[in-house]
Simulated scan of single mutants.
Amino acid sequence: MNLEFDCHSSFSPQLIREWSELLPKSTCHVPFLDPDYLAIWWETRGGGEWQEECQLVLITARYQGQLVGIAPLFYTPDFRGCPRLMLLGSVEVSDYLDFVVLPEYLADFCEQLLPFVRQLSLPQWEMLDLYNLFETSPTLQALTQTAQRMGGSTQTERAYRCPQILLPGDWEQYLATLDKKQRHEVRRKIRRLEASGFNTRWYRVEDGKHLEEEINAFIQLMEFDEAKKRFLTPPMRQFMKQVIRWAHQKGILHLAFLEIDGIKAAAYLAFDMLNRLWIYNSGINPGFWDFSPGWVLVAYQLQWANEHHREAFDFMRGDEEYKYRFGAVDRFLDRLIITLPNN
């Protein structure tokens, strides 16, 4: 079927509305494809990852007037030495990316997208460079086949590990899935903190009245880590704050703190969406290392997620050892590079 394509250089209110309605029905539904999230990403250029010379390229496809697909792209004049088109949200702060397309239109969307992109009035670009696609994404196969039919070349490479835990819905059943040593370690660390004599509590931020205070507290915890402190440039700090506000407004914010004697010892920022927790970032106060506050807070959140019947605990990108010690199993993200003839 012939689709009607168009290219947009801004996030109009109408496009955001239609995009929001399309996303839950698309082949890939993740927090990082929400149009309001991507508008924040674009406003801050990914928290400073990209420069002002980049150009927004939002491509929509309609069938009989109905929006059926979106390729959220941007043009960058110089990434690793050459100009290219990339998925909006690339690369560092948006863990999962893809097109937003109704499944029944995906093949036609990809087949007609590449010829449309090639004839756009854009600065010369050399390749489509698409990061953070699930290895199981049907977009990978559809785009590869289309590019090869057009005489182009394609390259797919493994980009990231994304460990996740599928939850049984019961804390004790979850613990039983761990090996004996790790199960003992989880229980031991929780007991050690709870028997320490300190007043301890963990909580989720729910009341927006103190949201700004909690955002600042979270960023302060992140800054205890020197690598994260360097990461938190002024643009990245702006991006992080806006993302937390966005998640709260959308009703998907899961910002959890562990306090020991009234002092914030650890925090995890996650999104509670689509019946899973998407673990996005964390901060630990090193003054409480003896009590393993980060580890304990992960355990508390896993218990909460089981009790509230979440289906999965998604650690997202990164292969840190502690994730696997909690029983996480890898999923993988791929990077697809497409070079078309005569670009």
Score class of each variant (00 low, 15 high):
A142I: 04
T144L: 04
Q145G: 12
G151R: 03
Q141G: 08
R161K: 10
P138K: 05
A159T: 09
E157W: 04
Q155A: 05
E135D: 12
R149F: 04
T154C: 13
A147V: 13
T139N: 07
E135A: 14
S153N: 00
R161Q: 14
F134L: 05
M150A: 15
P138T: 06
T144N: 08
L133C: 08
Q141V: 08
T156H: 06
M150D: 04
R149T: 11
R149G: 03
L143W: 10
R158K: 04
L143E: 09
S153C: 01
G151Q: 02
T156F: 03
A159D: 15
S153V: 01
A159E: 15
T144Y: 02
A159S: 15
E135N: 07
S153G: 01
R158N: 02
R149Q: 14
L133Y: 03
P138M: 05
S137C: 02
E135W: 01
T146R: 15
P138N: 06
P138S: 09
Q155P: 00
T136Q: 13
L143Y: 08
R158V: 03
R158D: 03
Q145V: 08
R149H: 14
R161D: 11
T136F: 00
Y160R: 02
Q141H: 12
R149W: 05
T144P: 00
G151V: 03
N132E: 10
F134C: 03
R149Y: 04
T139R: 04
E157L: 08
R149K: 15
L140D: 04
Y160L: 00
R158A: 06
Y160M: 00
R149A: 11
A142N: 10
E157I: 12
M150Y: 15
Q141E: 14
L140T: 01
E135K: 09
G152T: 13
T154A: 13
L133G: 03
S153I: 01
P138Q: 08
Q141S: 14
Q148M: 08
S153Q: 07
T139F: 14
F134P: 05
R161M: 03
L143G: 04
Q148H: 14
A147M: 11
T146I: 12
T154I: 06
A159I: 06
M150Q: 15
Y160K: 01
T136R: 09
T146D: 14
T136V: 04
E157R: 11
G152M: 11
T144M: 09
P138Y: 08
G151D: 07
T136G: 02
R149E: 08
T136E: 15
Q148Y: 08
P138D: 06
E157K: 06
T146E: 14
N132P: 06
A159N: 12
A147C: 10
N132K: 10
P138H: 03
E157Q: 12
E157Y: 07
T139M: 08
T154K: 08
T146P: 12
L143C: 07
Q141N: 12
S153Y: 00
P138A: 09
G152K: 06
R161T: 15
L133R: 04
N132G: 07
F134K: 05
E157T: 15
T146L: 13
L133V: 01
E157N: 07
T144I: 07
Q148A: 12
G151L: 09
T146H: 15
Y160V: 00
A142S: 15
A142W: 02
E157H: 05
